[in-house]
C-alpha cells in the first residue's frame, strides 16, 4: 500500500518508507573493512539471534488481545520464528509491554525484566506504554514504560494493528543485526535522537 501525505509534526512522510536506514548504517560502518573472522562470526550470531526472538507472554490490557491476534492464524508470527512464546521470563528474549503500566505494576515489570536473560529486548506496544496514552493525566499511570526499563522499539497505536506489531518486530530484527558480539563496548550508538517506529496510521 502506498503511503500518502501523512501529517505528523515530528516525522516526514518520506521517513515512512525508509525502512533500510539501519542496513545502510551497517554498510557505512563496515566501509573501512573489519576483521574477517570476528565479522563473519558476528554475522552468524546476529543472524541466529535476530531470527529466533522468543517473546514473553506479557500483557496488561487491550494490546494483549492484538498480540494474541498476531499469534493466531491470520497474522501468524510463526512465519518469523517468533511463535515459541515462553511463559517464564528466564527463557524469553523479548518482552512486549502491551498495555498500560500502572504504579502498582511498575515494580513487577521491572522485576520481570531483571529476571530475563541477556540478550533481552523490549518492545513498547501501544500508546499507554509509550507515553501513558489516553491515561496520561491519570494519577496512577506510568507515563511511558521507558521510565522503568530501556525500550528498543516503539509501536504506536491504541491498540496497534497486528500488522504494526509485525513491523515493530521486524524493526527489532534489523536492530539486532547491528549488534557486535565480540566488541561489546563499541556497540554502535544508534539512538541519536531517532527512534524506530512501527505502524504508520
Amino acid at each position: 500500500m502506498e503511503v500518502k501525505d501523512i501529517k505528523i509534526k515530528s516525522m516526514k512522510t518520506e521517513d515512512f518508507k525508509d525502512n533500510e536506514y539501519l542496513e545502510k548504517y551497517i554498510e557505512e560502518l563496515q566501509k573501512e573493512g573489519l576483521n574477517i573472522v570476528t565479522e563473519k562470526l558476528d554475522d552468524l550470531i546476529n543472524w541466529g539471534r535476530s531470527n529466533s526472538v522468543w517473546p514473553f507472554t506479557f500483557a496488561t490490557s487491550c494490546c494483549g488481545i492484538e498480540f494474541m491476534c498476531v499469534a493466531a492464524a491470520r497474522h501468524d508470527f510463526a512465519r518469523f520464528g517468533w511463535e515459541v512464546t515462553r511463559n517464564s521470563p528466564r527463557q524469553a528474549d523479548v518482552i512486549f509491554v502491551s498495555g498500560t503500566i500502572t504504579y502498582k505494576m511498575a515494580p513487577v515489570l521491572k522485576r520481570l525484566y531483571d529476571q530475563m536473560a541477556e540478550p533481552k529486548y523490549v518492545i513498547a506496544v501501544g500508546g499507554c506504554s509509550i507515553s501513558g496514552g489516553p491515561f496520561k493525566e491519570s494519577y496512577h499511570v506510568v507515563n511511558g514504560v521507558d521510565k522503568i526499563i530501556p525500550v528498543d522499539v516503539y509501536v504506536p497505536g491504541c491498540p496497534p494493528r497486528p500488522e504494526a506489531m509485525l513491523y515493530g518486530m521486524m524493526q527489532l530484527q534489523r536492530k539486532i543485526k547491528l549488534e557486535n558480539f565480540f566488541k561489546l563496548p563499541k556497540r554502535p550508538n544508534i539512538s541519536n535522537g531517532q527512534t524506530e517506529e512501527g505502524g504508520t496510521k
Binding site: L44, I45, W47, G48, R49, N51, S52, V53, R79, G81, V84, R90, D93, Q115, A117, E118, P119, F181
Partner: peptide
Amino acid sequence: GLLQPIADMVKILLKEII
C-alpha cells in the same frame, strides 16, 4: 523456513545462563 531451528540453536547457545 528450514533454517529456523538452526537460528534457535545459535541463539540458545549464546544466551546468558542465569
